[in-house]
């Protein structure tokens, strides 16, 4: 009998490649990774904000989707408001991942469509002292991430001294909203920011952020 293996599907290949980027970024906060192009999802439903259609950041939404399955509870928000579970976009995510839709308090993964929704981070589950790993992981779409015009200085495990990174086009209290999620280590929210080109930084709860 010979042992052979099935070639991974397009989505499985994407999930593994995305996970390796997230793994590297989470282990080394401030390192800018590149999420691969999610070619298997050419069309993601738009949502309406003030009667204007809003496009999802396909890199951020699909990299969050790559970690979802029937064991996970998911929620998403745009324009500082949680999106209804019956909406097209939530059903789209649920059909492709088999995840359970949930309220903010019980979500294990959330996708925030814009930096303004970071004001909702305080509603998320930060875990307990005994089970801090049961906290939420938030994927946030931001306009631009680069290392040429740094706005934040990061310190903590995974960083040799400090690391400077630029997160641009976000609301003024974006950094403060994130900093507030790590005031009670080991409780806290782990955050991944992904820009419109798929550039990604991770901010695990151990990562201390100061403004440049």
């Amino acid at each position: 009998m010979t042992t052979t293996f099935q070639q991974p599907s397009l989505f499985e290949t994407f999930c593994t490649a995305t996970f390796r980027v997230l793994l590297d970024c989470m282990a080394r906060p401030g390192t800018i990774g590149q999420i691969p192009e999610p070619t298997m999802f050419p069309q993601i439903p738009t949502i309406a904000i003030d009667d204007q259609p809003m496009l999802a950041n396909r890199f951020a939404l699909t990299s969050c989707l790559s970690l979802l399955d029937q064991e996970t509870r998911f929620a998403q928000a745009a324009n500082n408001t949680w999106i209804d579970a019956q909406s097209d976009i939530n059903r789209w995510v649920q059909l492709r991942s088999n995840c359970r839709l949930s309220d903010a308090k019980n979500a294990l993964f959330v996708y925030l469509w814009d930096s303004a929704s970071s004001a909702l981070l305080h509603e998320l589950n930060q875990g307990t002292l005994t089970f801090p790993e049961q906290s939420c992981t938030a994927f946030i779409a931001v306009p631009e991430i680069n290392d040429t015009e740094p706005t934040w200085r990061l310190r903590g495990p995974g960083i040799d001294g400090h690391c400077d990174v630029g997160v641009h086009g976000v609301v003024t209290d974006f950094a403060q909203n994130i900093i507030a999620t790590r005031a009670h280590f080991p409780l806290g929210i782990d955050i991944v920011c992904i820009d419109t080109h798929g550039k990604c930084i991770a901010l695990p709860r151990t990562c201390q952020i100061s403004l440049n």
Partner: peptide, 10 residues
């Protein structure tokens, strides 16, 4: 994978 990401964050 999910638990590895949490383990790195803690």
């Amino acid at each position: 994978r999910r638990q590895i990401l949490k383990a790195i964050a803690l």
